[in-house]
Computed example of a mutant assay.
Amino acid sequence: MTQIDYYFATMSPFTYLAGGRLEEVAAKHGATVKYKPLDIMALFSRTGGTPPKDRHPNRIEYRLQELKRVAKHNDMPINLKPAHWPGNMAPSAYAIIAAQNAGGGDVGGLTQAILRACWAEEKDVADESVIREALSAHGFDPELVNSGLLSGAETYSRNLDEAVEAGAFGAPTYIVGKEVFWGQDRLDYLDDYLAEIS
C-alpha cells in the first residue's frame, strides 16, 4: 500500500486551506497517510526560507491576497489575521502525534479541526481545552493532550529532520517515495501521480 508522508504545521494557513482533500485523494487510491507535524519556522531556517513576518512587503501583501482567493475558491472561511497567530504549535502537534500512535480515531479530521480552530474560529491551538475538544470530537481520548508529551516532542523533532532529508521546505508537503508535492494546490498532481503508480 502506498504511503503519503504528510509534512505540515498546525498553524499553516495553506495547510488549513487543503481541507480534507488529501484524505479524499488517499482514499481514492487506497493510500495511507502518515501525519508528520513539524516546526515550520525551523524548517524555513534550515532550508533557506523566510518567516512571513520577515518577508518583503510585496510578498506579505501577495500572501494575504492569495489566502483570500484560495479560501474563496475552496469555499472555506478564513480570518487573514487570526487572534492567536503566530503562536505555539507544539502542543497541538504533540496531540496529533499521540492520536496517530493511539489509533482508533480520525487523525485527518483532528488535524483539520485544529487548523480550522486557528484560521476560522479565533481559537488558540496551544490551549489545552481547544486541543481536548478536537481530540474528543474525532474519536480520541482527550487525555492524550498530556500523556503523549515526551514521545510527541521526540517525534516532532524527528519529523523536522526527516522533512529536510526528504526534500521538504514548506507546508503542506506531500511525499510519496522520492516525489515531492509542495502546497495545497498540488493535490491534483498528487492525485495524478498516485493514479500512475497504482
Rank of each mutant, 00 (worst) to 15 (best):
T32D: 12
G108R: 03
E143Y: 00
A31C: 10
P51A: 14
G20P: 00
D127Y: 00
G104P: 07
N101F: 00
R116F: 01
D124V: 01
A90V: 07
F44D: 09
R132D: 00
E179H: 15
P82L: 12
D5G: 05
E66H: 11
N79M: 08
D191K: 09
L187Q: 04
D5C: 03
Q100Y: 08
G167M: 08
F8N: 10
A120G: 06
G87A: 14
E162C: 05
N74V: 07
R21A: 09
G183H: 11
R21L: 09
D192W: 15
Q184R: 15
W85E: 12
V180A: 02
A117T: 07
T32M: 07
F181V: 06
T173F: 04
V25F: 07
I78L: 10
S157Q: 11
D106R: 03
N159E: 05
G148R: 05
G105Y: 06
E165L: 10
A137E: 08
A117R: 06
F14H: 14
R158V: 11
W119P: 06
Q184N: 15
F8T: 09
A26N: 15
A95L: 02
F14I: 06
G152E: 14
D54R: 08
Q65F: 03
Y174D: 10
N58F: 15
K123V: 02
G103N: 08
P86T: 09
G139S: 01
G20I: 00
I60W: 01
G48K: 04
E179T: 13
A163Y: 05
E66M: 03
D39A: 08
P91K: 07
I114G: 07
F140C: 02
E122T: 01
A120E: 06
Y16H: 14
A120Q: 08
S45Q: 12
P52S: 13
I4G: 01
K123P: 05
R63I: 13
E133N: 07
L22C: 05
D185E: 14
I40M: 12
A137Y: 08
W85S: 14
S151C: 06
D54N: 07
G167Q: 11
P86E: 03
K178F: 03
A26D: 15
K34Q: 09
L190T: 05
D75E: 14
A26G: 09
L110F: 04
I114P: 10
M89S: 08
G103W: 07
G152D: 04
P77A: 11
Y193Q: 07
A31L: 12
I131D: 01
I78Y: 02
L194C: 11
N101Q: 15
E66L: 11
T10A: 02
P172H: 04
S151E: 13
P13V: 10
A153R: 14
K36D: 01
L110H: 12
T111G: 04
Y7N: 01
G139T: 06
L43V: 03
V125N: 12
N146S: 09
P77E: 05
L38F: 07
P57H: 06
S92V: 02
P86C: 04
A42V: 02
D192R: 13
L187A: 11
K28R: 14
Q100L: 12
L160R: 01
L115S: 11
N101R: 15
